Computed example of a mutant assay.
Amino acid sequence: MKTEVLYNDNMHFEHVSWKRELAFWEDELKSFNNRLSELVTRWTDKDLLAKLEHYQNEFVLHGGVIEDLQEIIEEHETRIAGQDIEGEDALDTQLAKQHVEFRTKMENQRHIYAELKKEFFRFLEKYM
């Protein structure tokens, strides 16, 4: 079994990438909410308005997940910075384990978010 060694520089690089991705998602959610606002002014059908509320709730929930993920990244970055001050570069096994687990969380969230976007775009095609 091959053991992966995670160096602080590599974890930091991945954190930066994730932070950019999360910031992009935040911007997209703003755009999606703007689309919802447009639709609310166009439609009065109760079933459609219920769907709009569903998406609004999904976007709020996803925004909360983004905030949680950003917070975890910042905690990891603080820990890495502390190691750098102490002159350590790797082998904080707990941090490495958390990093790998977080990578899985990001992959899962990426999939969930992509599915939500596809569903929302299909919805927009139908009602915009």
Rank of each mutant, 00 (worst) to 15 (best):
L61M: 15
G63M: 07
L39E: 01
E71Y: 13
V65H: 03
N33K: 09
A50W: 07
I66K: 02
E67G: 05
R35G: 02
H62E: 11
H62F: 13
E21C: 14
L36I: 05
R35E: 04
K46A: 13
E53L: 15
N34M: 12
L52M: 06
A50S: 09
R35A: 03
D47T: 11
H62Q: 13
D27C: 08
F32S: 02
I66D: 00
E38W: 05
K30W: 06
N34K: 15
W25A: 07
A50N: 08
R42I: 04
E67I: 08
L29H: 02
E58A: 15
Q70H: 14
R35P: 01
E28N: 12
L61S: 12
A50E: 07
L61K: 14
A23L: 12
L29Q: 04
K51F: 01
N57L: 14
I66M: 06
L22R: 02
D47R: 06
E28L: 14
Q70T: 11
E71H: 07
D47K: 10
N34I: 15
Q56S: 10
D45F: 02
K30P: 08
K30M: 10
E21K: 14
T41N: 11
E71R: 12
G64T: 07
Y55L: 04
D27T: 09
I66R: 02
D27Q: 10
L49G: 05
N57Y: 13
N34V: 14
E53K: 13
V65W: 02
G63L: 04
L61Q: 15
K51G: 03
K30H: 11
L69C: 01
V40D: 05
I66N: 00
D68T: 14
H54V: 08
L29R: 04
L29E: 04
L22Y: 05
R35I: 06
E26F: 01
K46V: 04
F32Y: 11
E38S: 12
G63W: 00
D45P: 06
V65D: 03
V65C: 04
F32C: 07
N57M: 14
L29T: 02
N57P: 06
D27K: 08
V40M: 10
A23F: 13
K46Q: 12
E58D: 12
E26V: 03
H62D: 08
D27F: 02
E71Q: 14
L29Y: 01
I66Q: 02
N57H: 13
L69D: 01
Y55K: 00
D45K: 03
S37Q: 15
F32T: 01
V65Y: 05
H54G: 11
E38L: 05
E28K: 08
L52P: 00
L36S: 00
F32I: 07
D47C: 07
Q70D: 11
V65F: 08
V65E: 04
N33R: 10
L48P: 01
E21Q: 15
R35F: 01
